[in-house]
């Protein structure tokens, strides 16, 4: 029984981690390469979710809405990059924080204005409803498996693109030496417009995918954004590989921590104390993990630029 719970929660943690990866992937590249801090990335996640939730009834269900949400979040990413981010490259981090913070306020409130403050729920698409028996007694929702599949698939695709195409090569080269790449006649800015927009779409994709399992509400992107930051810092700013590993690590630690911290504590302290302290400790787990990693490696697991 307890093994089943562990297995289910591990899968849930994996699913959560993969969603975090989708949000963090594009962001870490932009941070690493442009030395740009974008607080407004979380709104892309929220917009992906809202577009899916709102369009679903009109677009023939979840999949139709998803198909529309992807290009729309890509377009929104392009627009934001063009209007707000681009003038901020090369400016101080303070300007970037303020402007992108402003964007969050606008979009969060704008969503409230347009769709109301009440959470919207989206039914699980019929095709992916129900549960499957993974092993004896281990029942897992098909939809969550689908998310894991989609996350892994996207990760693989990303890896193929970054590692195997000319575009990916330029992004990697740009990450280590932007002036060099522009000396080769490549428009680095256009390259990173593409990365930003593509990253926005990935975040939108993550937001769309979670609509059937989470409630869609204003500000839902903020928490995810901060978790994505933890992922990026732990993985090493600018490292896709680091973001992938860190996302899985954080997804697992957070999910397992929340389900088992209290039980584990009960082995050490009295049950009432464990019940009191457990949830607080569980909510600290990933930050403590971050602190631990950074204490040993200030540049994260895969520092892309050496400090020295």
């Amino acid at each position: 029984m307890s093994f089943t719970l562990l297995a289910v929660q591990t899968l849930n943690g994996l699913q959560f981690g993969l969603m975090l990866f989708l949000v963090a992937a594009g962001l870490t590249l932009v941070f690493g390469v442009m030395d740009f801090i974008n607080l407004a990335h979380g709104v892309q996640y929220m917009l992906g979710a809202y577009l899916t939730a709102v369009l679903a009834p009109h677009a023939g269900g979840f999949f139709g809405a998803l198909a529309l949400a992807l290009p729309l979040t890509l377009a929104l990413g392009l627009v934001l990059e063009r209007i707000v981010f681009r003038p901020l490259y090369g400016r101080g981090h303070l300007d970037q924080v303020l402007a992108t913070f402003g964007v969050i306020l606008i979009v969060n409130e704008g969503v409230k204005l347009a769709f109301g403050a009440a959470p919207i729920s989206v039914p699980v698409p019929d095709l992916l409803s129900g549960s499957v028996m993974l092993t004896d007694g281990l029942l897992f929702p098909v939809y969550r498996l689908a998310i894991i599949g989609a996350g892994l698939g996207t990760g693989l695709l990303l890896w193929l693109v970054i590692d195997g195409t000319k575009f990916g090569m330029l992004v990697r080269a740009g990450a280590t030496n932007a002036p060099m790449v522009s000396a080769l006649g490549v428009d680095v800015r256009r390259l990173f417009t593409a990365v930003t927009a593509f990253g926005a779409m990935l975040a939108g994709f993550a937001g769309a995918m979670v609509t059937p399992i989470l409630s869609v509400e204003p500000g839902m992107g903020d928490g995810v954004l901060i978790l994505a930051f933890v992922v990026i810092v732990v993985g090493g700013v600018g490292s896709i590989r680091g973001a992938f590993l860190a996302a899985l690590l954080i997804g697992l630690v957070d999910t397992l921590g929340r389900s088992f911290a209290t039980d584990i504590l009960k082995l050490m302290v009295s049950a009432p104390t464990a019940n009191r302290v457990g949830p607080a400790l569980a909510s600290m787990a990933i930050y403590v993990l971050m602190a631990g990693v950074l204490a040993v490696r200030p540049g994260g697991l895969f520092p892309s630029r050496s400090a020295g």
Binding site: L98, A99, F101, G102, V103, L105, I106, G110
Partner: peptide, 14 residues
């Protein structure tokens, strides 16, 4: 929905 105005002000100022 004052936050929209406040956010817009921030973006504009920057």
């Amino acid at each position: 929905h004052w936050k929209i105005a406040f956010g817009a002000l921030l973006v504009a100022v920057v």
